[in-house]
Write a protein that binds this DNA or RNA. Sequence first.
DNA 1: GTAATAGTGTCTCTCAGACAGTATGTC
DNA 2: GACATACTGTCTGAGAGACACTATTAC
Lengths: 220, 220
Amino acid sequence: MAYKPAITTIDVVLFTLVDEALQLVLLAREDAPFPGMLALPGGYLHTESDADTRAAARRTLEQKTNIKAPYLEQLYTFSGPDRDPRGWSLSVAYYALVSEDVLSLRKAEGVALYSVDCLPELAFDHNEIVAMALKRLRDKSSYSSLPCYLLPSEFTLPELQATYEITMGCKLDKSSFRRKLDELDFLEIIAGNFKAGKHRPAQLYRVRKEKSLMLFDRTV
Amino acid sequence: MAYKPAITTIDVVLFTLVDEALQLVLLAREDAPFPGMLALPGGYLHTESDADTRAAARRTLEQKTNIKAPYLEQLYTFSGPDRDPRGWSLSVAYYALVSEDVLSLRKAEGVALYSVDCLPELAFDHNEIVAMALKRLRDKSSYSSLPCYLLPSEFTLPELQATYEITMGCKLDKSSFRRKLDELDFLEIIAGNFKAGKHRPAQLYRVRKEKSLMLFDRTV
DNA sequence: GTAATAGTGTCTCTCAGACAGTATGTC
DNA sequence: GACATACTGTCTGAGAGACACTATTAC
């Protein structure tokens, strides 16, 4: 009871896919500490109104970026006396995925996208948070339908394969990929076709169970 | 700044292996809330002295149970207005593994072991925390050397296989198990033998890199 | 010797990568 | 027609489960 409370915040790593590259949302800080520096969307935990840290992450994301992320998962809790110059702090970090079409439609002023391959120095320990989020995304992509959340609701198999290749960081064999998708059975065909510009159109698909993340027994 | 702080605590799920069964450490609460009820070892975050939540978890475990757990990993952060009757609270949960010989040598007064298969009702949301810790342990055992932390520093392959079977919750084939261990190459033979009571003695092994958890590409 | 546990060898089936081959669009 | 991309079929090699086999102890 008598212990001095930690500064308790929420930070969110919001990923999206633009031009075949994984990007994340950063904001320039207005107030101290680190004014003008880039940082993850984040803010204080509101114990008066937030139902839990997950709700706080949703609220923060909406307030700062105007995005309702379809996928949001707790990442890790970072803490210590030195990560915030104001004092001992604790940040519950989340990561979120959103498709670029939803992001570009709705994003707020001041929201900027940065490729994960060439990130600037960020405020607090946010580079460390991003590194862990990236690792989680890469690892989890290989055994789940997570990359689907980076695509629009309708997509082609070549697009999905490219997305898996980007998140996992390695090339996949087309034949094996499709074979496994077929066995895993979490996609369904949409009647219409998709014209990929200059060549043979590709079949459009959507995920069967829109709501839930699929976890697989083995790697994709 | 002006936000009312959450009650910030640390809870630790400490697993061990006794009589071929996974057990965890519980303590009877002395103070309110939930006096007399069983709960996980836990306590307040000390921002004056703790270097981070991990250090707080180590300290809590040592104070409450007198155990220095060789393996300690952050599990999840639980939060909300209703999990603690005193108000909006946030608990950073960790899980830890210790071998029974270390545990029984050093454990403090009041420490009681309960099999994970028949747990009583616990204080706060601690049943939920235990459930998540169990799931993490089960999942991670299949692709890591995690179960080694439940054994003494020297062990036989039949003992190790039994441990994997208990944490993973399924039987393993002896031949496949040994083949994979050989390929993964994280164990080393100890010269002496081990007399398992009445029959052929088994070779003793130890983990090669004592310090670090090994993560495998594929399942064990 | 038998019983019991430790440890090894081999067969087979499944699955994933490799890659060739076919289909369908634009130009 | 050429070309590019979408999609499918087949071969092969690696790995895991099944299970029989040998080895070494106690009795």
